[in-house]
Amino acid sequence: MTICYLCDQMNMLQQTMRLLWRDWILEWRTRYALSGIVLYVLATIVLVYSALIDIQPKVWNAIFWVIILFAAVSAIVKSFVQESQSRQLYYYNLVHPLALLLAKMIYNTSLLFLLSLLSWGALALLTGNPVKETGLFILAIFLGSMGLSIAFTFVSAISAKAQNSATLMAILGFPVIIPILLTLVKIGANALRLIQDTSISSDILILVAINLVLLSVSILLYPFLWRD
């Protein structure tokens, strides 16, 4: 059985919230992900801008999701790797393992959502804002950050167990997130009014369904994953 010292004092939601708070504080202290991603977005935009000069909405849509994808990889890859094995063992003694996973997922979702909004802002500042349906685009960004976070957090939990974990995460993660990316590009094209699609609500439903399925599978499988 799990030894969980804080379980008597807090329920799982409180534990999750506490861990989430701790993750944010850690991020705020170093601003590692935030500054890294801002640099990354700027570099990409400058490069693409100087190569294409005039960025068409179609290209804009592609560039945006490419930026989000790599932002997700570089932000999430360190979820389980940045902390040493012994400190993780300490956490597992303190809290329920699922609280740890959920906290990471929520933290990554919020971080990625924030980063996406930031890169959207930066892109809009430099190249103009082609997004016509803002609400739909924000919804797509939110669902996308959620899906990418869930998939990549779980995959990083798997690959953290091996040595060469960054490479392994890319190999395991990229095929898994393709369905999410395909749907995101489609919803993004709708929000930019590149295509007129009447079945947009079913696309959103698909994305929600993929997120929920990946989330529940992760929760079901994590108990078998964390202990060594």
């Binding site: 998939a151 779980f154 798997i158 167990k161 395991l172 095929p175 898994v176 393709i178 369905p179 395909l182 749907t183 079945s199 079913s202 696309d203 698909i206 369904a209 993929i210 399925v213 990946l214 599978v217 992760s218 499988l221 078998f224 994953l225």
Partner: peptide, 24 residues
């Protein structure tokens, strides 16, 4: 253990990939 976890995860990820997305 870890490859068993991944195998289940992969199969679940497979369903939307080959049965849902192409239909839309």
């Amino acid at each position: 253990r870890i490859s068993a976890v991944y195998n289940i995860f992969a199969f679940i990820a497979l369903i939307p990939l080959i049965y849902v997305l192409p239909r839309l």
